[in-house]
């Protein structure tokens, strides 16, 4: 039995067994989940001879960056051997255009649905949500035929249009919910001041939307950058995004497998979402959480 005390002031800090166990568990979990990343990095820095030794956890004997160079500009994707760098720029083009259009249009949609409430707004919103929950694979065949008919099959315009169409339901939902929290009196005040649809959007509502624009952009960027299926089907040979080219490099069925190049190419393809993650921090988490409804 402890001696009677007279508690006063802050509770004394102390290292308990529970705390040690907790931090120990966290450290082990982190190490466990980091292990594949570690293997990828060290493998990409090894020569093929060293990789063949089979010690995948071993530190590279000497750092060899040639695999990264090859991955970027020399690896063979199908018949051409220009590396994954071509795909990188294709992905940048596709992502920038798709994100810009889907966020702008989604913001306008959300604004119109929240504040102007046109006749049939609920039906439009219901249809948009239905679109968000239908598996998009079932649209691929009709879209391919449709795009061919209007002449945008296998083009940058086609792949951007697909991304905008499939991004809109969720981006609209994000903005609509964000605007639902803005007091409608603000909108009324602007109307009394004589501002119209575009003026209110551009001068009053959009300047307040920075957090949602950032979240929606992050959400859309990671989604579109990581897309494989749409890129493969709609982009056309000249605009294949990085993900498709990565697949072509990694999944060769002839010749030697260059594991170091494959690892480097994979990390290059994952670099953009990773950089966004590290730069944007809490915004990224919000974007992921916002997308949680779609899973």
């Amino acid at each position: 039995m402890a001696a009677p005390q007279n508690p006063r002031g802050p509770r004394p800090a102390g290292v308990t067994v529970g705390r040690v166990g907790l931090y120990g568990f966290l450290a082990i979990s982190a190490a466990f989940f980091l292990l594949p990343a570690y293997v990828m990095v060290v493998t990409s820095l090894k020569s093929m001879d060293e990789i063949r030794l089979g010690a995948i956890f071993a530190w590279p004997a000497h750092f060899d960056l040639s695999a990264w160079l090859t991955a970027w500009s020399g690896a063979c994707t199908g018949l051409t051997c220009n590396g994954i760098g071509v795909g990188f720029w294709n992905s940048v083009k596709i992502t920038v255009l798709s994100v810009a259009f889907s966020v702008i249009i989604g913001a306008i949609n959300g604004y119109a649905l929240s504040f102007w409430r046109p006749a049939g707004a609920k039906i439009v919103f219901g249809l948009l949500m239905l679109g968000a929950f239908l598996p998009f694979q079932i649209f691929i065949y009709p879209l391919v035929r449709g795009f061919a008919a209007i002449g945008i099959a296998d083009s940058l315009a086609g792949i951007v249009l697909v991304h905008v169409l499939f991004g809109l339901p969720l981006v609209t939902l994000l903005f609509r919910n964000y605007y639902a929290a803005i007091p409608v009196e603000l909108f009324k005040a602007a109307r009394v001041d004589g501002a119209g649809f575009w003026r209110i959007f551009l001068e009053v509502i959009l300047p307040m939307s920075t957090p949602m624009v950032v979240v929606a952009s992050i959400f859309q960027t990671t989604g579109i950058w990581n897309d494989f299926l749409f890129g493969l089907v709609f982009a056309g040979r000249d605009n294949l995004p990085m993900t498709v080219q990565l697949n072509n490099i990694v999944n060769t069925t002839t010749g030697e497998r260059f594991y170091n190049v494959n690892m480097a190419a994979t990390m290059l393809a994952a670099a953009v979402p990773l950089v966004i993650y590290f730069v944007s921090g809490r915004w990224f988490v919000r974007g992921i959480a916002a997308g949680a409804v779609k899973g």
Binding site: P183, E185, L186, K188, A189, A190, R191, V192, D193, G194, A195, E203, V204, P207, M208
Partner: peptide, 30 residues
């Protein structure tokens, strides 16, 4: 008539000031 054409000024419970504008630009917006 549109609200702005009716010759009225309105003050709201939640103030409804444009948050990204200065006081001066809030006053002069209309």
């Amino acid at each position: 008539a549109e609200p702005s054409q009716r010759g009225i000024g309105m003050v709201f419970q939640s103030y409804a000031l444009y948050p990204r504008m200065t006081v001066e630009r809030n006053l002069s917006f209309g």
